[in-house]
C-alpha cells in the first residue's frame, strides 16, 4: 500500500514537471494582460493577433511545406534505396549503411554547418537549401525503418509468384509492398517528426527572410517573449495531441504505443 502510493506520488511529480510549463503557457494564452503572473480576464486577443501576424503565419506555412515535402521525398528516395541496398552484396550494404549513419551520428550543429559550407559555394541559401538539408537528414530514418521489414519479408513467396508468371512489378506490389508498408509509414512519420522539430540544421541552411516556426520563435525569443507565442504554443500542442491520439487510436500493441 505504501509502495503503491509512493509510486503514484512519483508519477505525479514527473507529470507535473512535464506538464506544468505547458499548462502555464496555455493559461497565459487566454490572459488579458501582458503580465506573466496576474490574471487580467479571459481573451482571445492573442489568437487574433497570431493569425493576423504575417511573419508567424508565413513561418507556419513554410514549416508545413518543408515538413511534408521533405518527408515525402525522403520516403520515396529512402524506400527505393532500401530496396536497392537489400539486393546488394554484404560489402556494398556495409558501405551504403555506413554513409547513411553519418547524419544520424553527427551532431545537428555539425550537419547544419557542413551543408551550409557546401551550399554557399554553389548557390544562395533559401527555401531549397533547407528542403535539401531536411531530406538528407530524413532519408536515414526511412531506410532504417524499411530495411528490417524487407529482410523479414518472404523472398520465396515473391519468387513463387514470378515462377507462376507474375511480372516483377506485379509480384512486388502484391507481395513485398504490403509487407514493407508499415516500415514505409513509420519512416514517413518519423521524418515528419524530425523535420517539424528541427532547429539547428534549419538555422544554418536557411537564407535571410525564410523562417520555419523553430527559427522564428528563436529570433523572437532573443528579442523578448510576445504573448502571441503562448497562443502559438497552445495551438501546436493541441495539434500534436490530436494527431498522436489519432495515430495511436485502435493500435493493438499497447505496450509500444509509438511503434
Amino acid at each position: 500500500m505504501v509502495r503503491k502510493s509512493a509510486e503514484r506520488i512519483y508519477l505525479f511529480l514527473i507529470f507535473l514537471f512535464l506538464y506544468l510549463p505547458i499548462v502555464v503557457l496555455i493559461v497565459l494564452s487566454f490572459n488579458n494582460s501582458k503580465s506573466k503572473v496576474h490574471w487580467g480576464g479571459f481573451t482571445l486577443n492573442w489568437y487574433k493577433r497570431l493569425f493576423s501576424s504575417s511573419s508567424i503565419m508565413e513561418a507556419f506555412y513554410t514549416t508545413i511545406f518543408i515538413t511534408l515535402a521533405s518527408a515525402l521525398i525522403a520516403t520515396l528516395l529512402g524506400t527505393l534505396a532500401a530496396l536497392g541496398i537489400d539486393a546488394m552484396k554484404k560489402r556494398g550494404q556495409a558501405v551504403m549503411l555506413g554513409a547513411t549513419n553519418i547524419p544520424l551520428l553527427n551532431a545537428d550543429i555539425v550537419t547544419g554547418i557542413s551543408m551550409m559550407l557546401l551550399f554557399v559555394r554553389f548557390t544562395r541559401l533559401g527555401m531549397n537549401t533547407v528542403l535539401i538539408a531536411h531530406i538528407t537528414f530524413n532519408i536515414p530514418y526511412v531506410i532504417l525503418n524499411v530495411l528490417p521489414k524487407l529482410k523479414q519479408s518472404s523472398r520465396t513467396t515473391y519468387e513463387a509468384a514470378l515462377d507462376l508468371g507474375a511480372t516483377p512489378l506485379y509480384a512486388f506490389s502484391k507481395i513485398i509492398w504490403p509487407q514493407i508498408l508499415p516500415g514505409v509509414l513509420s519512416g514517413f512519420l518519423m521524418s515528419m517528426t524530425m523535420s517539424l522539430d528541427d532547429f539547428s540544421v534549419t538555422y544554418f541552411t536557411k537564407g535571410t527572410g525564410i523562417n520555419t516556426l523553430s527559427t522564428m520563435i528563436y529570433t523572437e525569443m532573443r528579442k523578448g517573449i510576445r504573448p502571441e507565442m503562448y497562443a502559438l504554443s497552445t495551438i501546436l500542442f493541441l495539434i500534436a495531441l490530436i494527431l498522436l491520439l489519432f495515430l495511436n487510436y485502435g493500435k493493438t500493441a499497447h505496450k509500444e504505443p509509438h511503434h
Binding site: 506544468l20 510549463p21 503557457l25 516556426l213 523553430s214 507565442m229 504554443s233 501546436l236 495531441l241 494527431l243
Partner: peptide, 17 residues
C-alpha cells in the same frame, strides 16, 4: 507526448517560468 511539442516552445516555456 511533450516530446512532440516543438523544441523551441519547450525552451520558451521554461524561460517564462
Amino acid at each position: 507526448l511533450p516530446m512532440w511539442m516543438n523544441f523551441m516552445l519547450r525552451i520558451l516555456a521554461w524561460k517564462m517560468l
